[in-house]
């Protein structure tokens, strides 16, 4: 069984978001980068399938060489090998085309991506990849079992849970629940040492079509100070919500 986990290299969740070059690009100054949290849940699930079902786990990112530290971390967590497709992508569709190109050559049985990235929040790449490959696609996935070429999965829907089944190959949009927070693997010294020996291959990009481009970033306008209401005067809160905010 061959698994590909798609890794997005994103600013740490506590990062202050700032922009440079007249607000046309993200300011990486002083920002720490991490594995996109949804991808990390997916990677952990893949490592379990490696340990229990002998799967081979490859991680891939489409990005410049600044992403390699994140790929090394994935190797230290337990992935067998890493690929970096050498391209600074402009949009989700461009990423999906690069990934589809690799997948067509390598015929992975399971491709795991995150439900969405926490930087662009596009929720685009996994679905576009599945459509380009004409593979089954299950997003918001919170449970996955694979037996032979049968997959069973649960996914979160608005207000509930849906259970589905299908044949491999499959693209998964992972999120919390696929594994729990406490299950995430923290690399140990041995893992970090081993990661240095594992292959990290740089692949040339095919440079497909770009269908959207960001021309500018904006920050939300600063908000006013909180209006505090005394705990003894709940009527005032209700009055404010009704007459001022007009939300009840």
């Amino acid at each position: 069984m061959k698994i590909l986990v798609c890794i997005s290299h994103v600013p740490d969740t506590t990062s202050k978001i700032n922009f440079t070059d007249e607000d046309s690009s993200f300011d990486t100054n002083g920002v720490q980068f991490i594995i996109n949290p949804n991808d990390e849940f997916g990677l952990t699930r893949a490592i379990w399938m490696q340990q229990q079902q002998g799967a081979e786990v490859t991680v891939v990112t489409v990005g410049d060489n600044s992403c390699e530290s994140t790929l090394r971390k994935c190797l230290a967590i337990g992935a067998n090998k890493a690929l970096r497709i050498d391209l600074k992508p402009s949009d989700g569709f461009e990423v999906a085309q690069e990934l589809a190109n690799i997948c067509k050559k390598e015929n992975y049985d399971i491709i795991i991506a995150g439900r969405e990235s926490i930087d662009y929040n596009g929720a685009m790449v996994p679905g576009m990849l599945a459509a380009l490959l004409d593979y089954n696609f299950i997003t918001n996935c919170i449970e996955l079992t694979v037996d032979g070429d049968d997959a069973k999965a649960s996914r979160e829907i608005d207000g509930g849970i849906e259970t589905v089944s299908c044949k491999l190959p499959i693209v998964i949009g992972a999120q919390k629940g696929l594994v729990e927070e406490k299950d995430l693997i923290i690399p140990n010294m041995r893992g970090i040492m081993q990661a240095r020996q594992k292959p990290l291959e740089v692949v040339q990009a095919i440079k497909g079509t770009i269908r959207s481009s960001i021309i500018k970033f904006e920050k939300p306008s600063p908000k006013g100070a909180v209006k505090l209401v005394s705990a003894d005067d709940i009527d005032q809160l209700i009055d404010l919500l009704h007459n001022e905010a007009k939300v009840i």
Binding site: I17, F19, R211, S212, S213, I214, I215, K216, F217, E218, K219, P220
Partner: peptide
């Protein structure tokens, strides 16, 4: 935390 303006 921010917005972007995109061209399509």
């Amino acid at each position: 935390k921010a917005f972007n303006i995109s061209n399509l």
